[in-house]
Amino acid sequence: MLRAENITVHFGRRTVLHDVSFDAKPGALTAIVGPNGSGKTTLLKAITGEASHDGQVMLNDRDITSAKPWELAAIRGVLPQATPLAFPFTVSEVVRLGLISGVTADQAAIIPAALSRVGLTDYGARFYQELSGGEQQRVQLARVLAQVWEPISEAGPHWLFLDEPVSALDIAHQLQVMKIARDFANAGGGVVAVMHDLNLTAMFADQIALISDGRIVAQSTPDEILTNDLLSRAYNCAVQVNTPPPSGTYILPQMATMGAH
C-alpha cells in the first residue's frame, strides 16, 4: 500500500502542490494525469522522496523519510523522464547498475531477461550513448525492472514509479511498455505512472488521479475520471470522450496490436 497524506511542496515561494492526498494499491496500475505544469511529476517526486515536502508518505507501512536508500531500493524502482549518463557504458552495464543495491545482485541472468522484456534483446553490447532517445528510455526501464525483478516478495509487494514512461516512444513500444507495467501489476506489484496520453491511460490504468493547479481534482476508476466534464475542466479545453470525428483520419492505440500486420 502507498499512502501519501497532506503533501505540500514549495519551489521557492511558489506552492506547487497544495495539501494533496493520494494512494495506490499493489496489484493495480495507478495513473497520475493532468495538464502541463499541474504538478504531476512533482507529486511523483514527493512520493519517491526526491522533492522535499510537508506531509507523510507511507510505502508498505514504512515512512519513506526515515527509510535508508537501500531499504527503499529493495522494494521500489523509479524511472525518471530522462536519465543522463556520464561515461561510455554498454547497454548491459547500464542494466547491471540496477542490480547495484544487492537486492537481486549477482543474478547476471536478469540482465538479458530484462533487455528481452523491453524488446532490446541484441542490444547488450551496444553503447548507451549511441542509442536513440526511445531506446535509451527502454534501457532505463530494463534497469529499473532488474532492480525490482519480482513484483512481490515475502516482505511485501514491490513498486514501480514511472515518470511519463512512454512519452518518447512510438506506438508499438508505447503498448509494449504499458503492457510490461500492466503485467507487473497483475502479478501483484504496484505501479504508479505519470501519464500524458489519455488513451493509453484509459486502456491500462485501474485508478486515475486527475491533478490540476497543484490539487487533486478526483481520484477514481477510468470510467469515472475520463468524462467530458472533469477533463474539460482540468485541462481547460473542451474534450469529448468516445466521440469519433465526423471526418479525417484518427489512430487509436485501443485498436492497435503489437507485432501483427
Binding site: 519517491t48 526526491e50 535508508k68 536508500p69 537501500w70 527503499l72 531500493a73 529493495a74 521500489r76 524502482g77 523509479v78 525518471p80 536519465t83 543522463p84 549518463l85 556520464a86 561515461f87 557504458f89 547498475l97 540496477g98 547495484i100 543495491s101 544487492g102 537486492v103 532492480q147
Partner: peptide, 18 residues
C-alpha cells in the same frame, strides 16, 4: 560512483548512500 554516473537522484533510488 557507478550509481552516480546516472545522477545523484537515480543513484539514491538504486540504493546508494549518496
Amino acid at each position: 560512483l557507478n550509481g552516480l554516473a546516472l545522477g545523484e537522484t537515480a543513484a539514491s533510488h538504486m540504493g546508494i548512500a549518496v
